[in-house]
């Protein structure tokens, strides 16, 4: 789920799980997720860079391709874990915290430092290039 969400256009391949990589206590994940054995598509680095608003040179695109694939492969190892008998969980840990935050305000006392760090501040606003369109 997590890695598919990160890089939605990439499909994960199953690869053998290295012994000892996952402690058994942490083996909670989605049992309904098909363990895909299909070959991994190459990451579309140009598209990913565009989505992240990062400019990459053609050489960098070449360099990043295999690196990204390596990360995805690494997650792919998780696909080999047998989860047939395990109840799906939304998150990895369900250890309870019994006291969520109360709704009592507290003013941050070093606002000056935040304002100071804004690259282009036009009191009292943050100044940004003119934008009218979201997409």
């Amino acid at each position: 789920m997590i890695s598919c969400g990160l890089l939605p256009r990439l499909r994960l391949a199953a690869s053998p799980l290295k012994p000892g990589l996952l402690p058994t206590s942490k083996r909670s994940s989605y049992s309904h997720r098909p363990r895909c054995a299909a070959a991994l598509e190459s990451p579309d680095v140009a598209r990913l860079a565009d989505a992240a608003r990062i400019s990459l040179s053609p050489q960098e695109v070449e360099q990043f391709g295999p690196k990204i694939r390596q990360v995805v492969d690494w997650f792919g190892q998780l696909q080999a874990v047998d989860l047939e008998s395990i109840e799906p969980s939304l998150r990895a840990s369900t250890e309870a915290v019994s006291s969520p935050r109360e709704d009592t305000p507290e003013t941050f006392d070093n606002r000056e430092a935040i304002i100071e760090a804004i690259p282009s501040y036009d009191d009292p606003y943050i100044k940004v290039p003119r934008v009218l369109n979201k997409d």
Binding site: R101, D103, P105, F108, I114
Partner: peptide, 27 residues
């Protein structure tokens, strides 16, 4: 009384950029 994920107060019409903290500024 506070924002969703930080303790900053919010009231409509406050002076611009006064009810902010590192969390809601995404630092």
């Amino acid at each position: 009384s506070t924002k969703a994920f930080c303790r900053c107060p919010y009231s409509y019409g406050s002076d611009p950029n006064t009810t902010i903290c590192p969390v809601c500024m995404g630092l």
